[in-house]
Simulated scan of single mutants.
Amino acid sequence: MSNFADVSKAFREYLQIEKNASPYTVEFYMDDLESFFAFLDEEAISRLQDVDYQIIRVYLTRLYDKKLGRRSVSRKISSLKSFYRFLERHNRVADNPFIYVSIPKSARPIPGFLYMEELEKLFEVNDLTDPLGQRNQALIETLYATGLRVSECQGLKLSDIDFTIGTMFIKGKGNKERYMPFGRFAEVALETYINDGREKLLDKADSARDNVFLNARGGPLTARGIRKILNKMVEKAAMTVHVHPHKLRHTFATHLLNEGADLRTVQELLGHENLSSTQIYTHVTKDRLRHVYMNSHPRAKE
């Protein structure tokens, strides 16, 4: 297994340095690799070049026996395809046995989103005289105004915000950079929080921070902390829907498309590399268009 450990380390460095993958992506790859190595160990296979299509079929059977969903299996196979591509490129194996493996893709789930009436409830629950209330208001206004990923919001710095032109500098997945505009509601909420509540939270910290969003002790707010804040806001609003940061991202995209924004613009705003990632939102807007048509056109139904 020692040679597995060596090549695993080399693959991690390749992902981090050459592919510039995010820490989350790297860990997903390494978890998939670790479970595959454990399988090889159980099968008494000590050399990566001994893996062939028949062994992969056995591995797939094991995954399905564990009741893994099609999406999880697809991700593992994709990880291992990339791993063997890396091995092949560095002459550690003669060929890539995973290129012959294909997993039928399941239908992508249509993303959930919030209606404006639901959002309004969340905008009204925070105490704007309290530092944490100001922070929470700035947080939800920012997430809805920009559609940022939770990691992008968590990493937002004061120096990234330009209030003179109403834009944020965002470093997204794979260190891809983009400028994100934001509107008046987010501007007011951010300025109130930064000039008042954030200063009071910063007084509790042992050192100065450039992070926009701080926790109650004045330290940087974590992704988990952001999710907890949204959950508490939902409880205060007495809502039954589940709200998470990515749902606000879905809401941002859906509302833009519903109001006539073109797909390419929304792709740029979301920081999607491929248009296909953005196209899933058209399913939501098509359903809404059909609903409006069926309920509004005089001859749509009897």
Rank of each mutant, 00 (worst) to 15 (best):
F37I: 05
D127S: 14
K286A: 15
R57F: 01
M294Y: 04
F123P: 01
S46N: 13
K228C: 12
R70F: 00
K173V: 10
I280A: 05
F37D: 06
L80N: 06
L40N: 12
G225P: 02
R290F: 06
R209A: 09
S79H: 06
I103M: 08
L122M: 08
F39N: 08
E117I: 13
N231R: 05
R89P: 02
F185W: 04
H283L: 13
L214W: 07
P298I: 09
L48S: 05
A10G: 07
H250S: 06
V284I: 14
D160G: 05
Q267G: 13
A223Q: 14
G260N: 05
Q16M: 08
H246V: 07
P131N: 12
F185G: 00
D287S: 14
E302Q: 08
R149S: 07
M233Y: 09
T192D: 07
E199W: 04
K176W: 00
M168S: 07
L132M: 11
S102T: 02
G260F: 07
L201I: 03
G225H: 06
S79F: 00
A186V: 05
I110R: 01
I161P: 02
H242L: 00
T222G: 10
R217K: 11
S102P: 00
A205L: 00
M168Y: 05
D95S: 13
Y293T: 10
K173E: 11
L275V: 15
G69K: 14
I161F: 02
N231K: 04
A107G: 03
L263F: 13
A238V: 07
L257G: 10
E268S: 15
E187R: 14
L80S: 03
L275S: 15
Y281D: 03
K176P: 03
S22D: 15
V51N: 12
I165G: 01
S207G: 00
E187P: 03
L257N: 08
L68S: 02
A253L: 11
G183E: 02
L33K: 01
C153M: 15
M294N: 13
R290A: 10
L48Q: 09
H246P: 01
A44K: 14
T167Y: 00
V212K: 11
S22T: 15
I170K: 05
I103P: 04
L60W: 00
R198S: 11
R71D: 02
V292S: 10
P111M: 09
F4Y: 15
L257M: 13
R249K: 13
R299K: 09
V93Q: 06
T129A: 14
S46F: 12
V51M: 13
L190K: 01
A216D: 07
L132S: 02
S79Y: 04
Q267K: 15
R299G: 11
E199Y: 08
L269P: 07
R198Y: 09
K66C: 05
E124K: 13
A186P: 03
A145T: 03
L33V: 04
E88D: 06
L63C: 04
T192A: 04
K76L: 06
F113M: 08
A300S: 13
H255A: 04
F98G: 03
E42Q: 14
L122D: 03
L48I: 08
D160S: 15
K157I: 02
S72I: 00
G174Y: 14
H291V: 04
D127E: 07
F213L: 08
L119S: 01
Y293G: 10
S82G: 04
